[in-house]
């Protein structure tokens, strides 16, 4: 992490690096409601998103790159989702799967439903539908992979730092970056 956020990687390195990341997305399914069933359907033999490099066997958020929030998020559950998201290591991605986690869906007027998971965590890809078909999830995953392929890790980490929610964490990370700064040229040399 110390290097990635300091230097823009050379293009071929970045290409290979992003190619590797996009096809090994360890996925943590935060299955909340109906959409979780369609998520399981997408992971089983007929739709099978493992062929796209999505591995749904992350045992917890600490091992995961991708969080799929599938289903209705209630106010009672929201702190748990926030906590799980915070436990995930950077770089991390979130797919909001289904209308409920996009915007509240059929429960837009409910007194106990959080109207969209993006109110508490940042979302990369929204998959619409109630529930969306497994094919829609596959499409969402491919959209996310395109995004990962074209992305600069430096910019992404900088964006995360700018997020007001992470101001507190910044001090620790900056220190970390500084201590590794001396090692940076050597690593760059071997990387290039």
């Amino acid at each position: 992490m110390g290097l990635m956020d300091q230097v823009e990687l050379p293009k071929p390195v970045k290409y290979v690096f992003n190619w590797g990341r996009k096809y090994s997305l360890w996925c943590f399914n935060f299955g909340l409601a109906c959409c979780a069933i369609e998520f399981i359907a997408a992971s089983t033999s007929r739709h099978d998103f493992i062929r796209h490099g999505v591995i749904p066997f992350a045992h917890g958020p600490r091992q995961a790159d991708l969080l799929v929030v599938s289903g209705t998020l209630t106010d009672k559950m929201a702190p748990a989702v926030k906590r799980l998201y915070d436990e995930m290591p950077e770089p991390k991605y979130v797919i909001s799967f289904g209308s409920c986690s996009n915007c509240g869906g059929p429960y837009w007027d409910s007194y106990s439903v959080t109207k969209g998971v993006d109110q508490i965590i940042p979302v990369d890809v929204y998959v619409p539908g109630c529930p969306p078909r497994p094919e829609a999830l596959l499409d969402g995953i491919m959209k996310l992979q395109d995004r990962i392929q074209g992305e600069s890790l430096k910019d992404r980490i900088a964006a995360v730092r700018r997020d007001p929610a992470n101001i507190g964490a910044e001090a620790g990370m900056a220190l970390d970056a500084q201590s590794l700064h001396t090692a940076a040229p050597a690593e760059l040399g071997s990387g290039g």
Binding site: D75, K76, W108, D109, S110, Y111, S112, K115
Partner: peptide, 19 residues
Amino acid sequence: LTVENFEGWPLRKDFHLAS
């Protein structure tokens, strides 16, 4: 069912849906 610090009694008719 509701959040522990929820205020009001949801199924009473004088409880309005804020949305």
